[in-house]
Design a protein around this nucleic acid. Structure first.
Lengths: 338, 338
DNA sequence: GTGAAAGCGCTAACAG
DNA sequence: CTGTTAGCGCTTTCAC
């Protein structure tokens, strides 16, 4: 037996008043008789009345649902950001629907359309790695749906973003490697169109310059972010006549692949090769040796993205803000020689 | 400017026909004139008409949304299960809303109510660790909302579940530890009311019995699943006069805490202590030494839970099925002595 | 073949 | 103070 949810109609019928009276009473409309209000509220309570969000949504043309699109669900970086988004949005009475683009633009486009068709009230996105077109996001803006990017961003002129200072992060980490004795510092990174790749590469180059090292072009490798291709890139690096004595990875996928390859060759970290990355905080202290990495404030990234969305919903108009969050370089065994 | 979504009304007005004609034409109703149908479809296409899910939902009393409640979002085990659920449901045209109970029953109850109030079409749950009451799930059944549990389950008489064979898993792993020389095998596990705890403990005891070891009661520890309390439990174990020479952890949290404590004491794995756990596959090959663990078919757990929900929605009635999926014992360095 | 009308649950302007 | 009405977008009888 489907236990039908109780509606205003049910309450009105029981109390022999009109639906609108019930509706008003439940929102403490001053016009309604206090005693009646009490009676109505009591019954609503007793019958466990909950307004039907579908009806409300239809009326107000809003769903209380925020879409979130991430490249994947299973890495700590993204799941902890989602956790932050959730914490912030749920106390504002919003729900989130999470979709995974699986690092594919095609899938990302599909996700955007699905969510738009669902009539979400806002959209929070981290770009897929091969997302090099913005038409689908323009469409989001066309529909006047609040949009926020985090980490991997685009359309920065029009859309609010939550990011970290990739350039200085990469620069600091590069000079740190130099200070620990590295003279041939390689950088394995991702597709060139991604802002995080561009910025981290820029920081890496600035770091080299600052410590007076020249770039060996063979030491700057653009690959994609998949473990297989990262591994291939690393094998290439390790076979070079000018084998690097330090590797800076663009993210954790790259770093873990790197560690495995280095161990396979019986090279030691940090003795033979220093290792550092932009990583997700969690694994870093579990692997051996512990990994030096830039800790992103993942939970805060999520919270801030959520706040920006809420702000836009309240303001009722698209705003453009850029929030830059602080990171911390966590120096651990993988990059220190004493 | 809010670009209003186009409605049947808009199309009807443009073509000077009635709304119902448009509605019918779009679903290829045989009554409607073929030419008219074509014209209507063409305009709908051109204007990018998408039915409003809110209106449909109100009409049909369904939302196409499935709720998912997990103890947390940030461990690989859960996020990869969610990934499986998503893969299955999205191709069936359903969306998922994920809530995290943060291992708290109170929060879990809140999540259930929130989702129920949202009028979800189904609910997939893994119990929070301190969830020892079922009233909130009875309420789900009362409302005739399809319900499926995975991994940590309850109400098995009435509700469909997706699980693994914990008893034999735990037994196998225990005998495996014995075969690798362990004679004092400890088991650190969680709250007694959880099925996975009960079953794994049972398997552990059966394993001991099979190889002819007697249980040292000090070696079976029930704690909660938090890293801090796990660590405390492990410190206790390691300080015992009868210090164990193998530890079986109930999950990855426990195992990682264990590893750290063992390393802190300068004990070696596997030389001094063997280690094995029920874990989430991913970290196991990243830590040093690689961890022996039972690999859960996480993606499949998710897919199957989703399938069970879809089945119940289609059948229109609550069914009770129990799907037991196979696991694999991945033997790695942490438990082998040669 | 096509249109009019009712209804899903709710709110809000308009009457009394 | 309370009821009536219209309408959010859609489907589905029931008429013609």
């Amino acid at each position: 037996m489907k236990k039908k949810r109780v509606t205003l109609k049910d309450i009105a019928a029981e109390l022999k008043v009109s639906i609108s009276t019930v509706s008003r009473a439940l929102k403490d409309h001053p016009d309604i008789d206090k005693t009646l209000t009490k009676k109505i509220k009591a019954l609503a309570q007793k019958w466990n009345y909950i307004p039907n969000p579908l009806a409300m949504g239809l009326l107000r043309q809003q769903t209380q649902v925020i879409g979130v699109i991430v490249p994947d669900l299973v890495t700590y970086f993204f799941s902890s950001i989602i956790s932050g988004i959730e914490d912030e949005l749920q106390q504002a009475g919003y729900y989130i629907i999470i979709s995974s683009s699986k690092e594919s633009m095609e899938k990302e486009i599909e996700c955007v359309h699905n969510l738009l068709n669902l009539r979400i009230d806002g959209l929070i996105v981290c770009l897929a790695q091969d997302s090099n077109d913005t038409a689908h996001f323009e469409k989001v803006l066309d529909h006047d749906v609040p949009l926020v990017f985090f980490d991997r961003v685009c359309l920065e002129k029009k859309v609010s973003t939550v990011v970290v200072d990739n350039v200085s992060m990469a620069k600091d980490i590069t000079t740190h490697l130099f200070e620990n004795g590295a003279r041939k510092i390689a950088h394995i990174t991702g597709p060139k169109h991604l802002n995080i790749v561009k910025e981290r590469t820029e920081g890496y180059l600035k770091g080299l310059e600052q410590v007076g090292l020249l770039l060996d072009k063979k030491h700057l490798i653009h690959t994609d972010l998949s473990p297989n291709n990262a591994a291939k890139a690393i094998r290439g690096l390790l076979s070079l006549p000018s084998r690097p004595d330090a590797i800076l990875g663009v993210n954790d996928t790259v770093i873990f692949a790197t560690m495995k390859e280095i161990k396979n060759r019986n090279l030691k970290i940090p003795k033979d090769i220093l290792l550092a990355g932009f990583s997700d905080e969690f694994h870093a202290t579990v692997v051996e040796p512990n990994l030096t990495s830039v800790a992103h404030p993942t939970h805060d990234i999520g919270r801030n993205a959520a706040k920006l969305i809420l702000e836009q919903i309240q303001e009722g108009r698209s705003i453009q803000k850029k929030i830059i969050l602080n990171t911390e370089l966590h120096v651990r065994e993988s990059s220190t020689r004493h």
